[in-house]
């Protein structure tokens, strides 16, 4: 006769309650769903949160703050870490103003803005007292101290087959920028 699941009984491959309690600290302590803090999922209890307002006082600076068009208002509190700026800022502002979160264009434009932001920031850093340093900022110098070779080889890791792409992602823009600089300099020299 075939076994589970071709017949109705559950597989009997588990240990008994007593065996599990003896082996696992706290086994079954939350067996009753009532002991689980997120059960039920929604539990109406506004007094439990510590909020002493019906609607929070509004943080200053909401005017002009980019926001999802799925929001009726700019929420009362928001982050102010890095305001929009430059060409990347224009791309991001367009993404927020034109497309809802349900549209792929919204997110793809934001990702484009991220790439442009990285380029703009690298260029800006070159004109600063602290230019970006892809060697120290990638932490790659830790490879020796953190056993880069032993961690990767002789062990069964499938992520090794794509880690070679990472240096390309980091290095390609620098190589491209270097190439562009060489082309520009050569053109200037030839003009003379």
């Amino acid at each position: 006769m075939p076994s589970t699941p071709y017949v109705s009984n559950k597989p009997k491959n588990t240990e008994t309650r007593e065996e599990l309690r003896a082996r696992i600290p706290g086994w079954g302590a939350d067996l009753d769903p009532a002991d689980r803090p997120s059960y039920p999922k929604e539990r109406l209890d506004p007094s439990a949160t510590g909020a002493h307002w019906d609607f929070p006082e509004r943080q200053a600076g909401a005017e002009g703050r980019e926001h999802s068009i799925e929001h009726e208002i700019v929420p009362p509190v928001f982050g102010t870490s890095v305001p929009l700026k430059g060409f990347s800022g224009a791309i991001r502002r367009h993404a927020y103003a034109s497309y809802s979160e349900g549209r792929a264009a919204h997110w793809l434009l934001l990702i484009l803005g991220d790439r442009v932001d990285a380029w703009e920031s690298h260029l800006r850093s070159l004109a600063s007292l602290r230019p970006d340093n892809p060697v120290t900022e990638t932490g790659v110098l830790s490879e020796r101290r953190r056993h880069g070779i032993a961690s990767r080889f002789g062990v069964k890791r499938s992520d090794i087959n794509h880690q070679w792409i990472d240096p390309l992602i980091v290095g390609a823009p620098w190589v491209a920028a270097g190439g562009a600089a060489v082309v520009v300099v050569r053109k200037l020299v030839r003009r003379r």
Binding site: R43, D45, A51, W53, E66, S68, E70, H71, F78
Partner: peptide
């Protein structure tokens, strides 16, 4: 999270509606 919006009042603190202009 704010503790007072529709979602926070129901225990869904990670889904607060009063703290993130950039996404709902």
């Amino acid at each position: 999270y704010c503790g007072s919006c529709y979602f926070c009042a129901r225990g869904l603190y990670s889904n607060c509606h009063n703290v993130n202009p950039n996404a709902t």
